[in-house]
Amino acid sequence: MEKYKELMKQYMLTENEEALYKAEQFSKQLLQKDVSPDEIVQIHIESLKSLYPELPKEMKRSLDFLLETMIAYGIVHQEARDLREKQLELKSEIEVAANMQDTLLNTVIPDVEVLDIGVLSVAAKQMNGDYHHFIKDSSGNVGVGIADVIGKGIPAALCMSMIKYALDSFSDERFSPNSILELLNRVVERNVEAGMFITMFYGVYDIHSHEFTYSSAGHEPGFFYKAKSKQFEEIDARGIVLGVQNNVSYINYSKSLEVGDTVLLLTDGVTECRQGDRFIERQEVVDVVQKYIHLPAQHIVENVYRYFERLQDFDLRDDFTLIILRRER
């Protein structure tokens, strides 16, 4: 109050620019102290009255009128402050949830001599709606699942946790990919709201016969890379997404892998990349992978991600997951 009066007096007497500048600085301090607009008007009125006791009564009245008009602004100011606090609170809660999700959904890449495995999953928002899962069964075979929940953020993440627990509950036994999807479909169909669904691909790599058996529930098709011919081919697997119908049968497919042959699994965050108004064609994904195919699996996925990150100006629109399995020997 005294400071305001002082600055005002200074300006009234000198009309000095410096006093104006000081006033601007002072207003920042007031904001920090959460002084509301109507309080400032109040201070102004009192300072004015004490500097000029002889103020015309019309002037005084007009100032009281101004004060009343400012009250609503004061309330809004207070609300904005409360919202800011609330928002900070929510933000830190989401951070905690995101960390929990990381821990819960954490999966360990199995260490298998015959396979080189690379995986990268990046969330567009704080929480990831993509999920991937590795498992090594008692005979040493490797199961790999990749899934994408419709939507992003918290609802998608909660749904993903459900998949994870369902998978955990029956992954001890040796199920084939199609029966895993059938079981998951039942869980998802029963537990999600009407417009929600999940796409998923599940595959099992037999480390003795080098057969890759897989099944898909409407998941974005991945690719096989044949080392001998250096050709990519789309993984053809048909099946409806999880959560739409209650009694669905999925089909098992299988593919023999030679040394160097590679399985490439992804989510549509990879193929739905957009550069401005241009969509990334699937061929472009293949071309980029091809460029790095000579590298170790983990380096391939990292390089591919970096390529698409640059392409989109580092602004990821959708969760992005890429998995590479290569037969080493």
Partner: peptide, 8 residues
């Protein structure tokens, strides 16, 4: 097509 929804 991909999501199998064209069947339903």
């Amino acid at each position: 097509d991909i999501t199998g929804l064209k069947e339903v």
